[in-house]
Simulated scan of single mutants.
Amino acid sequence: MSGTARAVIQLPAHLRTINWFPGHMAKGLREMRNKMRQVDVIIEVRDARVPVSSMNPAFEAMLTRAATDRYILLNKIDLADPIATKRHVEVMEHNAKIALPDSQTWVFPVSLSDRSFLRKLIKDLKCKAAADPLKYSKMTLMIAGMPNVGKSTLINSLRNLGNGKGKAATTGGQPGVTRAVSGTPIKIVDEPTRIYLLDTPGIMDPQIRDPIQSFNVALTGGIRDHLAGMENLAEYLVFALRVRQREQALVDLFKMPSALLAPPVGAKPTVDPESGVLVEPVLPMRPVLDHVARRIGALEKGGVPNRDRAAAFMVQAFRTGKLGRFTLDTVPEPLATPVRAHEDGEEATNTTAQADFP
């Protein structure tokens, strides 16, 4: 791709906001509110590729009111841009000091397959309980986060490392496997202080207003694929790569002519009437999908390209890191003044602070 400056690339108008908030999520959110008083520590899991989009404003508001200590685990860092992750954490650290003065929040970029980190986490929780035995005759954790960020994997690993027990939570490749707050706390440590945890269903933001944010969540697997549409996800993937001028990843992986990822010959940028900036024409996706289908052998009778299979292959290539390490969320602005979070999510704040284990 040329290194020259180019017109602004806008999200295609037909890629609209995806909202997914089924009944079990609404019920789960109510149950989490009811159980918050029983909880000593929150462990929130987010996807490191979308550390802002995978934050639930309604849960953030709930936590702000409860003033409960929290660990935030940015999972899947092996798939995220390390420089972007570092910048996100710096802003989170700053914001925590302003917005959550009555509690502590620590953030750790992790891979939940790293058992050494999880051992340190268990050790840290034991030390926290031992430091205040009157407060922690027992300790109750709540595992929280949006769908498909790794909560059930975390629970099973903590239980296995803490007391040698097997699976306590069902895992799956699609979001929405866990559908209710666990009725019986799951014991992960027997002594010196008993530590229990509550599993919760993945809870989406009830109203995602920004289509880019909703597609960020969908592209990383947080929304069921059929709700977004596989070809729409592939088109958003191409948009996200082009905005970052990283189309070459697709060119290299699929031996794709770079011209397929450029505006059509003869098409000229238009002037946006509101901003006055030049905007590139929408990129035709059919030639891109047809090329990928031929490369992977996704052909129907008569050699007709199967675009849905091609789109699914492209999306899976992104999700498994074959296109490189990407962070889809931009780094938010640091907070200047405290922001009171509302439970409808309209003014909720993403706030975290980084700390090392003692």
Rank of each mutant, 00 (worst) to 15 (best):
G3T: 08
A7G: 15
V8I: 09
I9H: 04
Q10N: 11
A13R: 13
N19C: 08
P22C: 12
A26P: 03
G28R: 08
E31H: 09
N34M: 11
M36A: 13
V39P: 01
V41N: 01
A61S: 15
A61G: 15
R65P: 00
T68K: 13
N75Y: 06
L79M: 05
K86F: 04
K86C: 01
V89K: 04
A96N: 11
I98T: 06
I98C: 06
I98M: 09
I98W: 05
L100F: 12
P101S: 04
D102A: 10
W106P: 00
V107I: 15
F108W: 15
P109E: 10
V110T: 14
S111V: 07
S111H: 11
L118H: 06
R119Q: 14
K120E: 15
L121N: 04
K126L: 04
C127A: 14
C127R: 15
K128L: 15
A131M: 15
K135D: 03
K135S: 09
Y136P: 02
S137I: 10
M142N: 04
P147C: 05
G150A: 01
L154E: 02
N156G: 00
R159Q: 01
N163Y: 00
N163H: 03
K165T: 08
T170H: 07
T171E: 07
G176L: 04
G176H: 06
V181R: 03
T184V: 12
T193V: 15
T200D: 01
T200H: 01
G202C: 10
M204C: 12
D205R: 15
D210P: 06
Q213D: 15
S214R: 08
F215G: 03
F215P: 04
N216R: 13
A218I: 12
L219R: 06
L219H: 07
L219W: 05
I223G: 06
I223L: 13
D225C: 03
A228L: 12
M230F: 03
M230H: 09
L233Y: 10
L233V: 09
A234T: 06
F239Y: 14
A240H: 07
Q248G: 11
A249I: 00
F254P: 01
K255S: 09
M256H: 07
M256G: 06
P257F: 05
G266M: 02
T270V: 14
V271D: 08
S275N: 13
P284W: 08
R286T: 09
P287H: 05
P287C: 07
H291D: 04
V292F: 07
R295D: 10
I296C: 02
P305S: 05
P305A: 05
N306K: 13
Q316P: 00
F318G: 07
T320Q: 09
K322L: 14
L335E: 05
L335W: 06
L335H: 15
R340Q: 14
A341C: 11
H342E: 12
G345M: 09
T349R: 13
N350M: 11
T351I: 03
A353V: 02
A355D: 14
